[in-house]
Amino acid sequence: MSSEIINTSVEEYKKLVESLHSENYEMMVDLTVVDWFRKKEPRFEVVVQFLSISKNQRKTIKVFVDDEGLSIPSITDIYPSANFYEREAFDMFGINFLEHPDLTRILMPDDWNGHPLRKNYGSGRIPVQFKNAPKVE
């Protein structure tokens, strides 16, 4: 099942979502972010999946977020299911969703520094050490 892809801008994003909602796209299924670090300008791309149950169709909206401010309007007032997804995107990538009711960290602890899924955030891999293993010079 392939979905129709719509590329749009931040300014028209919310209008487009509203029109999708009125076109019987009942569900916002998924919202995620792709970090095109040093590959594309601007850097962050928000990808939102919509599902129309009555028409059995899918649509994908892709928006590039401006590097300054990293902000995009929230769609929680149209689709309440976007709430957790936008919080996740804020937590993992640091995208600001304007007028979100409760934009706080969701997966990481509240006092965490940085946004882990960004490409320039290290994976935090610790070199494996075996206890009591002889030291190799």
Partner: peptide
């Protein structure tokens, strides 16, 4: 910090 307006947004328009 949640006030009435925010609860409304959070619970959605249809609900």
């Amino acid at each position: 910090e949640e006030n009435a307006k925010q609860i409304k947004i959070q619970t959605g328009t249809d609900v």
